[in-house]
């Protein structure tokens, strides 16, 4: 009986895993470093989610985008040389839970961002824009730069971020609020203005082989987090966190 059950489970699992691969160009994404691809990327994610899941592949090139939302079972693979470039206009970020997010997932399951590519938040240009808006009174003076998140997840489980380089974010690079089962592995973080990993009431967090080339704080824990494992996570001075 047990065998049958596990076979059944295996079949279910393999159905999920056999999900399809999609190239970004299928949805009209342009790698020119100019075209804002948010419409195409969001459509691709929604489309893949509707198909039951799969992987959206970005190959070498710079893909400018505004904020977009991830959906359950949609994985993103950034192949070597692929750069997801956040817009330098703060209004292009999605407002979720009082934050301005580039990539977000709320109430989702099974999310992956993997590969050898880069996510670039263009913090310099973004900071200039925020400052000028504040000076003109068009953005509340209370607006805090650290409310700009590169990756923001809430009430989401089974998240894996692996292999990529995360650079130049204005605010936290990786924020997890009420999330479970988080794996961050082999990330290179180079973002002097922002915190790298921020946990709030999250559990089963596995951090391994992370290198914090520059960051404000490598790991910030708020609320009650449980089962936070750290393996080989190094700061620029060679010290472990």
């Amino acid at each position: 009986m047990k065998i049958y059950i596990s076979a059944f489970v295996f079949i279910l699992w393999s159905i999920q895993v056999s999900a399809q691969d999609f190239n970004a160009s299928l949805f009209g994404c342009k790698s020119d470093g100019v075209t804002n691809n948010v419409g195409s990327i969001q459509y691709a994610i929604d489309y893949i989610a509707k198909k039951g899941g799969g992987t959206l592949h970005f190959y070498v090139g710079r893909y400018v985008t505004s904020g977009f939302s991830l959906k359950s079972n949609v994985h993103i693979e950034l192949h070597e040389g692929a750069v997801l470039v956040g817009s330098s206009n703060i209004y292009d970020y999605q407002q979720i839970d009082g934050r301005y997010t580039l990539i977000s997932g709320v109430g989702q399951q099974n999310i992956q961002i993997k590969g050898l590519g880069v996510i670039d938040g263009q913090s310099k240009a973004l900071a200039l824009h925020v400052r000028s808006l504040k000076e003109k009174g068009l953005l509340s003076s209370e607006f805090a730069m650290d409310k700009v998140s590169q990756l923001y997840f809430s009430k989401t489980s089974n998240i894996a971020i692996e292999g990529i380089m995360q650079i130049n974010s204005l605010g936290a690079l990786n924020s997890f609020v009420d999330c479970q089962s988080i794996k961050l592995r082999k990330l290179e973080i180079n973002s002097p203005q922002s915190n790298a990993v921020v946990l709030l009431n999250s559990s089963q967090v596995n951090l391994s082989d992370l290198f914090f080339k520059s960051t404000k704080q490598a790991l910030v824990q708020e609320g009650t987090n449980s089962n936070v494992l750290k393996t080989n996570c190094l700061l620029a001075n060679g010290k472990s966190i």
Partner: peptide, 24 residues
């Protein structure tokens, strides 16, 4: 009157301004 440039809305013919116009 508000100028679009105040909001970072860009008239270069390439940048997509959807969200910044909406924000304005």
């Amino acid at each position: 009157d508000y100028k679009v440039s105040d909001f970072g809305i860009n008239g270069d013919g390439r940048i997509l301004n959807t969200r910044s116009i909406q924000a304005a």
